[in-house]
């Protein structure tokens, strides 16, 4: 299935285990970016936005390597993002029950294979940066995706591939 950001109600029909090719703009955000957003508000329109838990390697305005980071570090910081309209998260390792509940009826968590940074970078174009002062890993990078291969790890109905 192919999806393009910003996402809308189409995410509600996705099921855990579905394979998705995602295109369009996504924003990288790790611990420090979440904290800054909570303090100062979003530097981009959060409505229908997708956050990518990722701290890429950027060189000469190109994305060199950009696999996912461990999403669980953002467990306690994620609900306010979803409350503001974010409806897609990309990361690795899954998230807490609190996030599974917060996604209910409004968003999904996509899993991308941890460590597959070169594969991820091969479907990315760099568009811009926010919070550059946070450093390469923690800044918010605005990235244009072209068919990034993802698996729905947690759907909007409470199904969670990571929970066994």
């Amino acid at each position: 299935m192919r999806l393009t950001t910003p996402l809308g109600d189409e995410v509600l029909s996705l099921n855990a285990g579905d394979r998705v090719l995602l295109s369009g703009t996504v924003y990288t955000a790790r611990d420090e970016a979440h904290l800054r957003i909570l303090e100062e508000g979003f530097p981009f329109n959060p409505e229908g936005a997708v956050l990518y838990h990722c701290g890429p390697v950027i060189s000469d305005n190109e994305v060199v390597a950009a696999g996912p980071t461990t999403s669980a570090r953002m467990n306690k910081l994620t609900k306010p993002m979803l409350d503001a309209g974010v409806c897609g998260l990309i990361g690795k390792g899954g998230m807490s029950d609190e996030v599974v509940e917060a996604l209910r009826g409004r968003g999904v968590y996509f899993a991308f294979t941890g460590g597959c940074a070169a594969l991820a970078a091969s479907c990315m174009k760099l568009k811009g940066v926010h919070y550059a002062d946070l450093g390469m890993a923690e800044a918010v990078w605005e990235i244009e995706l072209s068919d990034m291969p993802l698996v729905v790890g947690i759907d909007s109905k409470g199904n969670n591939l990571f929970k066994r």
């Binding site: 390697v57 390597a65 950009a66 696999g67 294979t113 597959c116 940074a117 070169a118 091969s122």
Partner: peptide, 24 residues
């Protein structure tokens, strides 16, 4: 599918001469 991504990633990293993982 995860292993297939891993092998494809290893191939691309070698071909493009870039790090396998962004957490270097």
């Amino acid at each position: 599918g995860e292993y297939e991504n891993i092998f494809e990633n290893l191939r691309i990293a070698k071909e493009r001469d870039v790090p396998i993982c962004q957490d270097t």
